[in-house]
Design a protein around this nucleic acid. Sequence first.
DNA 1: AGGGGGACCTGTGCGC
DNA 2: TGCGCACAGGTCCCCC
Length: 279
Amino acid sequence: MPELPEVETVRTGLAPIMEGAHIVAATINRPNLRFAFPARFCARLEGAGIIALRRRAKYLLIELSTQETLIAHLGMSGRFSILAPGGPLPDTNPKHDHVEWVLSNEHKIVYNDPRRFGFMDLAANNALAQNRFLADLGPEPLGNGFSGAWLREAFTGKAQSVKAALLDQRIVAGLGNIYVCEALYCAGIRPQTPASKISKERLEKLSNCVRKIIATAITAGGSTLRDFAATDGALGYFQHRFSVYGREGEACLNKECGETIVRLVQSGRSSFYCPKCQH
DNA sequence: AGGGGGACCTGTGCGC
DNA sequence: TGCGCACAGGTCCCCC
């Protein structure tokens, strides 16, 4: 489910409820998600004040008053819900509720994750950059470090396909399968193209497309979040129209094109592209 | 050392 | 209706 824009949507949904509150009680309903919870996980959270919610790539970062930061990744199917006192319950299956936090403002935060590909960690604030999940991440797509010039440097000598290279979190942090497909359509580049064989001009265009796609998706998530949260408190899902992702066999959206969107499998994952508009 | 493929999980939707 | 299979928005880790 979550790529960078979805995690950002979750962050903006949780922040007004969580920031400034304390964690009164923390519960885990199993010893692990994808990985084991860190030692004394609940004890280290209980009593902590929540200073700020941030995001790095697809990671949600919750800065605590204890000089530690909680690092959370939603994997493929992770969802956070806000339960207001007397409010509606989330539509997620409660048997996959793995983590629960009761806040000082009487709201409850529940983490639900059927596939358990998500994970959580705790790191000292002054060692956050060295955390094993965060240390090797590349630039944020909307940050200053990401540009056509950066892609050129990162792609030099890469025999890998541009699809695989853009999914590499060390090259650009936060893109997933959907937005890579969308960005490559925007840039008119086929996903199979070896990364090193793309011209400077096209890499400039590609970097602009990545920024545009991500920025647009964040805006869409932010605008529909309130409606969704109002009904059941679950954050992170939103309907977003994609140009190629999931559109195999449908018409290319470029009116003058007339071609049909194709799906191919690259290293076990689906890529969608227009064979006429992308080369 | 870079890169491909398997492993980790459950749920859903489809064809037979 | 039931069964088996393919597939799902991610990441780590092993092996070549």
